[in-house]
Amino acid sequence: MKPEVGARHRQVVAEGLTRTQLVAYAGASGDFHPFHHDEIYATTHGFDQLFAHGMLTMGVTGEALVAVFGPEGLDRYGADFLKPVWPGDTLATELVVTAVHDDGSVEVDISTTDQHGTQVLRGTAAGRLAGD
């Protein structure tokens, strides 16, 4: 992605999200809330089925940021969780450069949508692009 206002990067960050990936994330993060692995608990508490951790959605979205900023290029990454993400969902992240500063750092808007085009995560990030 070029350090120019309006430059875009789009990346599929999850393809047919599996329950196994939710369990893997629970183990890696330590967040074993039953909403994210226990179907009976989730449906008993008003959901159609179990759903992904918001932090898993933010984590896979972070893979798109690493692709353009590199593993150590970010200064800031923030996100709001807008909608639940369900097993089977395919997520795509789009980054759009909104500002380029004199020191070479850039700011981007982040949008992650599911296969229906519904925005599930909205955020912003700042840092220095990889290779810049």
């Binding site: 960050v13 999850a14 990936q21 893997a24 994330y25 183990g27 890696a28 993060s29 967040d31 932090m55 898993l56 933010m58 984590g59 896979v60 972070g62 893979e63 940021l65 690493v66 593993p71 150590e72 970010l74 990454y77």
Partner: peptide, 25 residues
């Protein structure tokens, strides 16, 4: 383990790895 969980399915062991963006959680 964390990298694999967030979609880098073939992440290998790197004794000097940088933490991914959301790893602090």
């Amino acid at each position: 383990e964390f990298k694999r969980a967030v979609g880098d399915l073939d992440a290998s062991f790197d004794p000097d790895a940088a933490a991914p963006p959301t790893f602090m959680v």
